[in-house]
């Protein structure tokens, strides 16, 4: 479990276990006005982060990246290369910090764990029948247990959007609780659970806020926007609503939950806009890889190029960085 750094000291309130009780809980959340969210996002997007602030922001963003490969064609070799890059993103500049974690399919966890043993870089695995989650619970739990047993330190699971949209909140809740239990490990701390809401399939921001609270109540260590397989993925507005949710959840329960936008964040500008939203919505407490991650693959190279531009004054070309 993450530290509870919030101001409140109340124990997490475990809601009663019926659909009605969960609905009452979620319905009590304030609504979200779409135009208002978009206006706030647009306002925050005008923040100018330049020069020294930009250099710090780039390093912070690099340290928050979950460097991800989730392709059918992934190979052990590709994952090993990714791990090398995760540890030392720019071989020509050792001042570049490592990323937060690599994120791979369960069958490649062992490869990543071996490559990253005794390093600060975590191994995250999308488990529980990623990306659709459309498998019997037993299968999803087994998927999770294998990944954990193979050494994954973080598990990214996707909720049952169908059940959520149908109002079967209990099913969603119970599955998260079950996967969370499957994250336990006898030989060490449990894997952190990131719960993917797949916001592109939820209808609107009210649902994003409610799904966030449902996941947090069920024990999510992180709430994550998207699998990356559904469009739209991590829009700034969705991330903003989720940042409000973790802020409010900590105020109410005392437990701090992390946020991970994933998918669609490709440029340094996108990443910095996310950091600005974190800073001005959830607050500076979340400006830390423990509490904010960016799920991305191509983003890292852009961060590296922008970083090189700041340190050397000239733009390197994309071919100066490994394409994976």
């Amino acid at each position: 479990m993450p530290d509870t750094t919030g101001p409140a000291t109340r124990a997490p309130s475990a809601p009663a276990h019926s659909n009605a009780a969960l609905r009452a809980l979620l319905d009590s959340l304030p609504g979200v006005d779409e135009a208002g969210v978009h206006a706030r996002v647009a306002d925050l997007a005008t923040r100018s982060v330049k020069t020294t602030a930009k250099a710090r922001a780039i390093d912070l963003a690099i340290s928050m990246v979950d460097l991800t490969t989730l392709e059918g064609a992934d190979t052990p070799g590709k994952v090993r290369a990714l791990c090398t890059k995760a540890l030392l993103p720019d071989p020509t500049d050792r001042t570049v910090p490592p990323v937060a974690a690599v994120c791979v399919y369960p069958d490649l966890v062992r490869v990543a764990v071996r490559a990253l043993e005794s390093t600060p870089v975590g191994v995250a695995s999308v488990a529980s029948a990623f990306p659709a989650g459309r498998a019997p619970l037993e299968v999803r739990l087994l998927d999770t247990r294998y990944a954990v047993a193979d050494g994954a330190t973080e598990i990214d699971m996707v909720i049952d959007r169908g059940a959520f949209l149908a109002g079967d909140y209990r099913k969603v809740y119970d599955e998260i609780v079950a996967v969370k239990e499957a994250c336990d490990r006898s030989d060490g701390p449990p894997a952190h659970l990131k719960v993917i809401l797949e916001t592109g399939e939820l209808a609107g921001y009210d649902a994003v806020r409610r799904a966030s609270w449902l996941a947090m109540h069920a024990g999510a260590d992180f709430i994550k926007t998207s699998t990356g397989k559904v469009s739209p993925a991590a829009t700034p507005a969705v991330t903003l609503v989720m940042l409000q949710a973790v802020r409010d959840f900590r105020a109410e329960t005392g437990r701090q939950v992390g946020v991970k936008p994933a998918g669609g964040i490709r440029t340094t500008k996108d990443a910095i806009r996310n950091l600005v939203m974190v800073n001005e919505t959830a607050g500076p407490d979340w400006l830390d890889p423990h509490w904010f991650r960016i799920g991305a693959s191509s983003l890292l190279n852009d961060l590296l190029m922008q970083r090189a531009k700041l340190t050397t004054g000239t733009y390197p070309g994309p071919d100066y960085y490994s394409a994976d």
Partner: peptide, 8 residues
Amino acid sequence: TVWQTVGR
């Protein structure tokens, strides 16, 4: 004149 936001 009354303004009102439009959204889902």
